[in-house]
Write a protein that binds this DNA or RNA. Structure first.
Ligand code: MN
Ligand code: MN
Ligand code: ZN
Ligand code: ZN
Lengths: 129, 129
DNA sequence: ATGAAAATGATAATCATTTTCAATTATGCT
DNA sequence: AGCATAATTGAAAATGATTATCATTTTCAT
């Protein structure tokens, strides 16, 4: 009987996830890879990319893009939320969507859009910077 | 990885702007370049990139990223606004920020962030798709 | 006209991401 | 265990958008 791979987990996923977690904030695939290398872990860059992609698909990590287009990932809590990101040092604060959620839903409905999602991030200089 | 733009700022180019305008929606730098080529216009890809970047700096065009990370540009009206983008066909609707503006400002202030900006886009399937 | 400064674009370099594919490893079965 | 098959891995090569260089051309004020 064929095994069901619908919710398959790569055996590398936990290690990548743990590294991303210990990174504390956003990290790119390249950065996760370098962190694991420094820790002496044996893993390939390809596997890091694959693991991060599947974690995104499972909604265990968030993905967004830096201004230069590089994808960055972050382990998130189990609830939907947004971020304030410091343009200076990269520090992030998780925040609630609140008004944004209703804004997105009502405007999408108003224009007849279905299967709606949204992105919303705040950028600024943190108190330290 | 952050790259250095500093030596070529502020060179808008009417031909690039006109091509982007006639494209009607979002277009990448590569696409604008190809459009101009097909129209028989003589221009270099480098200049297209430079022109688009300066138009972004001047806030004459908006810049977004496709899921694959490619930057796409669109001529926008003169007021700050947001978009609903169709995941299927790419059609976009310009919308007002409304609640989002206050949300961003108040949360940023609450956490002591200065020099605040934000991004907010809605994605979904348009009525046609 | 002259020279300085700005603009241009061909070309090469950069670099994140994806693709390939052969080797390794896990899994299921007898 | 032993064997077959499928899944996983990662090194290496390919891809492709973006950026850096730099020689040449254009603009423009004097
Ligand atoms: Mn939200
Ligand atoms: Mn806004
Ligand atoms: Zn900061
Ligand atoms: Zn559509």
């Amino acid at each position: 009987m064929a095994r069901c791979w619908e919710h398959w987990l790569s055996r590398s996923n936990p290690r990548v996830l743990h590294t991303l977690e210990s990174a504390g904030g956003f990290a790119s695939a390249q950065e996760v890879y370098q962190l694991m290398q420094r820790e002496g872990q044996s893993i390939g860059l390809t596997t890091v990319y694959r693991a991060l992609q599947s974690l995104v698909n499972e909604k265990i990590v968030d993905i967004l893009r830096r201004d230069d287009g590089e994808a960055i990932y972050r382990l998130c809590g189990d609830s939907h939320h947004h971020h304030i990101v410091c343009k200076g040092c990269g520090d992030t604060v998780e925040i609630e969507g609140g008004a944004v959620e209703k804004w997105a839903q009502s405007l999408a409905a108003e224009h007849g859009y279905r299967d709606v999602g949204h992105s919303a991030e705040i950028f600024g200089l943190c108190p330290k910077c």
